[in-house]
Design a protein around this nucleic acid. Structure first.
Length: 728
DNA sequence: AGCACGCCGACT
DNA sequence: GTCGGCGTGCTC
């Protein structure tokens, strides 16, 4: 039989930015979801079979080159998720599918499953195996083995160099090896569980009421109220049923912290973590393990929302308000929104947790779409901190610090208590200015100031990475008196050290926390009471389980209130609520001092009164009156080019052709808030509609023409379409 | 997105 | 005489 006799044709999705599938001749009927290698022009690409037959068979069909039957076809539910994301975000199907796949599986070669042998204690081992008392961790591994066989990867989670140890034990006849991972899920074992508070018990019980079927629950729990413990209880029940659980966390270095807590609670549950810092091989391994049900618990950042989970029983999104759930390039998806869709598709519950829920989620609570559960008290019983405002218009400032702030820090030093000075700027000073002519050091590539980094004696752009030496004199007038403007973490550290020479100060920002170990070292020092003052950026507002502080001083936060972005006040309020939540421990009320020029602003007044509901209601009303999200739907077309004029001309053309089309309102082209970034200039076009369908209709109609519009404005032009933009 | 094909400047 | 610039057009 020759190829010409083969009647089988298939539609194949490829990793190209083209909005269609390609037809190939298959050697046999292939299942949907099958990975294949196909010729595409002069190259060979990995593809995924999306359907049988071709709609309009072109004259020149080429045959599939290889069928990659190393893995079963991708599951239908997973393909449905990909199709939904492609359709919703108006992103090509192939490109969407390949972003959802780990890099290793995007390549046109077979998947090499890592052999993961299973070790089982032999009868001899059961009788005689023991370890030296000087090796308690080895003994612990042995104790686990007494209860159940362990796969090598699982054993490594208990004891990092388990491979060598298990081989040694095999030599001694204590353990035997089986070749394949069976995917058998061990019975659930629980580590020590702390008792629940009354409030936690009530929430756990309330969550049990929606244990089956689709539901979305917002768990609004103030900092320290013990949300994680609630998740753990709920997760335990789902795991006990043999189902899988997906936990999404923000993209911060704290995934390991949470992972350790989960490991401790569910010592025998096969668990994988998925985040962008994982090596490609490891990521794919974890992904396949989840797909093959060899992993029961998946903890990951936004990309983990695309993990195939055939036995999914529960999704948890921690810190649901966090902006890192939104992908900001390529397929600009919201992992939170896709997770909710997935829960509906699978007919399972999803829990969104936060101390500062987003306005979108609160609006969904108000409209009755989401359930609302709250934890209003700290699990430790600690009272909420006192929040005081310092009106800096009436205070002499020393490098940004007011006398009351210095006095408060001093007081805490006397008491040997830990203080935090929170400032939203890293570096020494956010700008360098000439005292004579007013010149400011600006980035040559961006519309941004250069930040002075003192340890390196350099000026750095925080947007594009440009750096340069500090000029000896003003390039504009020759004056040698160049001054720092404003304060960053480095300068504050310096000034605080001058004020309090004996204080032990640590700086916490992206510069000092670059190394993975940085965070552990810091937490260790805090635990050993080796620090007096912390100087930190918003990195601190994002952390879970940060040790309690006695005093939090917030400097210079007002900027957000002048911001053009309508989201700025929501974000600032959430951020300050989160840092303020770090103050206070069980036996002692914490203190928060906020320096501001606008003490009368509702935002600060709400912080003083701990009035989250009141302020977010105010913001929601404001958004409703102005017709902003979540009370409208938006789409944003971004354009960038070496020249702003190019980007604007492209958008102007589309504006002219489309502003009268459909029922969505189209605003005229606008330069982006930060127009110049890394030597490219950016602008955008915003559509807004009251109903999602009005927006979809227009965007679906426009989408196929975008490439043609772009072609007319030269190859330097790049564009991208964003549905539900984070900010416009 | 790649990658080839296709027509105009400075080089062994 | 060629090597190579990147404009434009296609990929089942």
């Amino acid at each position: 039989m020759t190829l010409f006799d083969t009647p089988y044709t298939v539609q194949v999705a490829l990793d190209v930015p083209l909005d269609r599938c390609f037809d190939y001749i298959a050697p046999a009927p292939l299942p949907i979801g099958q990975r294949v290698v196909v010729p595409f022009g002069p190259r060979q690409l990995c593809g995924v079979v999306m359907g049988a037959g071709s709609l309009e068979p072109p004259a020149k069909l080429r045959p599939i080159q290889t069928v990659l039957d190393d893995l079963p076809p991708l599951p239908t539910a997973w393909l449905d998720l990909v199709k939904f994301a492609s359709d919703y975000y108006l992103y090509p199907l192939g490109a969407t599918l390949f972003t959802a796949l780990p890099t290793r599986l995007r390549q046109p070669k077979a998947w090499q499953a890592k052999t993961d042998p299973i070790y089982r204690l032999t009868e001899a081992g059961k009788l005689s195996a023991h370890c030296s008392t000087r090796a308690p961790r080895q003994q612990a591994l042995l104790d686990v083995l007494r209860q159940q066989p362990l796969s090598l990867s699982h054993a490594k989670q208990h004891y990092p160099t388990a491979a060598k140890l298990l081989e040694k034990w095999r030599g001694q006849g204590w353990v035997s090896v089986e070749d394949t991972a069976t995917g058998e899920i061990p019975p659930l074992a629980l580590g020590p569980q702390p008792p629940l508070t009354t409030a936690q018990t009530e929430v756990v019980q309330a969550l049990q009421q929606t244990a089956t079927g689709f539901s979305v629950t917002l768990l609004h729990g103030i900092t320290g109220s013990g949300k994680t413990e609630v998740y753990l209880r709920r997760i335990a029940e789902v795991l006990a049923q043999g189902k899988q659980v997906l936990v999404l966390v923000p993209e911060i270095s704290l995934t390991p912290q949470l992972e350790a807590r989960f490991r401790h609670r569910f010592p025998h549950t096969p668990m994988v973590s998925l985040h962008s810092q994982l090596a490609e091989g490891e990521r794919a391994q974890a992904w396949v393990a989840a797909w093959q049900q060899q992993a029961q618990l998946v903890i990951g950042t936004r990309l983990a929302v695309f993990t195939p989970l055939p036995a999914l029983g529960l999704i948890v999104i921690d810190e649901e308000h966090d902006s890192s759930f939104k992908q900001q390039e390529g397929l600009r998806y919201s992992a939170r929104d896709l997770a909710v869709w997935r829960a509906r598709q699978t007919q399972i519950p999803i829990v969104l947790g936060s101390a500062t829920p987003s306005l979108e989620t609160l609006a969904n609570v108000q409209s009755g779409r989401y359930r609302y559960l709250a934890l209003n008290q700290r699990a430790s019983g600690a009272p909420l901190p006192t929040v005081q405002l310092v009106d800096v218009r009436q205070q002499p400032l020393d490098a940004g610090l007011s006398p009351p702030a210095l006095a408060a820090i001093n007081h805490r030093l006397q008491q040997h208590e830990l203080s935090l000075v929170y400032v939203n700027r890293r570096g020494y000073a956010p700008a360098l200015a000439c005292g004579e002519c007013g010149w400011l050091a600006a980035c040559p590539c961006c519309s941004a100031r250069l930040v002075w980094h003192k340890p390196q004696q350099r000026l750095r752009c925080h947007h594009c990475g440009h750096q340069q030496r500090i000029p000896p004199a003003c390039p504009s007038c020759g004056n040698v008196d160049l001054r720092p403007l404003g304060q960053g973490t480095q300068r504050l550290e310096e000034v605080l050290q001058q004020h309090f020479p004996s204080a032990r100060i640590a700086r916490i920002d992206r510069d000092t926390m670059q190394r993975k170990s940085g965070w552990d070292e810091l937490l260790g020092k805090i635990a050993r009471h080796e620090l007096d003052i912390l100087v930190g950026t918003q990195m601190l507002a994002k952390g879970h389980d940060f040790p309690a502080l006695s005093l939090v001083v917030v400097l210079n936060a007002d900027g957000a209130l002048y911001s053009a972005s309508y989201r700025a006040s929501e974000t600032l309020f959430a951020e300050l609520t989160q840092v303020a939540g770090r103050a206070g421990r069980a036996n002692k009320r914490g203190e928060v001092l906020i320096q501001t020029q606008l003490p009368q602003d509702r935002l600060y007044q709400a912080l003083v009164k701990h009035d989250f509901q009141g302020y977010t209601q105010h913001l929601l009303q404001e958004r409703q009156q102005l017709g902003w999200p979540p009370y409208c739907y938006q789409a944003l077309l971004r354009a960038e080019a070496p020249q702003l004029a190019t980007a604007l001309a492209f958008l102007e053309q589309i504006y002219q052709d489309w502003h009268t089309q459909g029922e969505a309102y189209l605003f005229p082209p606008q330069p982006a808030a930060m127009t110049r970034l890394a030597n490219r200039e950016r602008a955008h076009l915003l559509w807004q509609a009251e109903h999602r369908n009005q927006l979809r209709t227009v965007m679906q109609a426009l989408r196929p023409h975008l490439a043609q519009y772009a072609r007319a404005y030269g190859q330097g032009l790049r564009w991208s379409l964003e549905i539900d933009p984070w900010e416009a």
